[in-house]
Design a binder for these strands. Sequence first.
DNA 1: CGTAAACAGTTTACACTGTAAACATTTCAT
DNA 2: ATGAAATGTTTACAGTGTAAACTGTTTACG
Lengths: 234, 234
Amino acid sequence: MTKTNREQRREETFLEIKATARRLMAEHGTAGLTVRGIAKEMGMTPPALYRYYDRLDDLITALITENFHALADALESACAAATPGRTVDKLMAAALAYRRWALDNPVDFELIYGTPIPGYHAPQEITVPASARTLVVFVGLFVEALENRECMPPPPYDRVPPELRSHLEQIMRDGDPTGSAPLLALYLALVCWPQIHGLVMLELLEHIGPVVGDMEFFARSQFENMGRAIGFTI
Amino acid sequence: MTKTNREQRREETFLEIKATARRLMAEHGTAGLTVRGIAKEMGMTPPALYRYYDRLDDLITALITENFHALADALESACAAATPGRTVDKLMAAALAYRRWALDNPVDFELIYGTPIPGYHAPQEITVPASARTLVVFVGLFVEALENRECMPPPPYDRVPPELRSHLEQIMRDGDPTGSAPLLALYLALVCWPQIHGLVMLELLEHIGPVVGDMEFFARSQFENMGRAIGFTI
DNA sequence: CGTAAACAGTTTACACTGTAAACATTTCAT
DNA sequence: ATGAAATGTTTACAGTGTAAACTGTTTACG
């Protein structure tokens, strides 16, 4: 089944719209994301864009899901680049990649993890699955580390709190139908993620960097302390 | 020096503008923060507001600084309400108050710690001092805990990393001219803050709650684990 | 007290924003 | 080749922030 000219041009236009939107946002922040701005940049009239996205919100949603996937991809390739077998290296690489991606793509990160653009409401059935991939990367690392006995969590990280058990089991079932992965992996991922995220968020919005000074070092050391706390030997 | 009628009415109008802005934002999110909306609500014409704030940005700045102070006040009174002498209780109370304030005042929290409203740029010389108060509360707790030997940090939290030392010393000097407070207190505050913040931020924007289930419990347990890790006995 | 200045408000206007409706043109399938 | 579908433009409307000019009120001072 070969594509007709029109279908191909349509796909290209979709790509051009998103690319233009990204360029304008990189230059002027989320304030640069306007129908008229994108249209002018592309040599079109604003209403023409409505042939591609019914509302500006739909374009935002498309950008957001792409960003979630781009972040998850960055984490995965960082893990892949780490020493095979040394899962702790992968965890450090993933945490640092999370930070690096945020710092290198600040607006894209704000778009997914920051306050929603005023008036925008994310259709969760679309964004949530994409969003989940990030957490899945970390869960995967802990599955590997626990299996290989590379991570030996001391109390209180050696077992899932009973208060969370049943709900986490259900989440695990929905995501992984085989249900083979240890529940503790999900719990440990949920312990680590907020620590990484909080540091990155505060640094990105310049709340903590000026106080700490060397954020590069601080982030590294915090991630290492985190790894040690949950049972890795670094 | 008694206030003239006009001065008093002017002050009241300032208050009414901010109160109206807060009400509209609570109802419609940051998208509800419009000059015209506030004016209509107050029975004025939009340009009239410009007698009080030269730009909408200035009103936003006023709201932001008030929010920083309100959050810091909430932390302080939570500490004050905790068992005297039990600094660990104060730390837990402060962390939980941070979360509670964010959940109870989501838009206000987003305004200070979320992505800036598109097009808005914070004048840092105004917002930074107000922002600092939050961190100062935590630093104060660690000063107290270290002095009373209530907190006995194990490695690697028993000393300030040399890579951060000189910069933290300078920060400490600028904030506290006596320079008496132990540097380690600032370091421990910087270790804890991102952990608390990350959890709250992810919960507030609904990235982690649906996965965890019982966020109330999870936050509590995470804060306790954090306290133990840096040398408190809970 | 009377007057001039400062203040507080309205009216009008402009340059933006998203988007709906009507219409013209191009492209494709039959 | 013809009808339908897709893609664009034009025009329009209801929002947005805010600047300029103007009017009325309140205050401070000679």
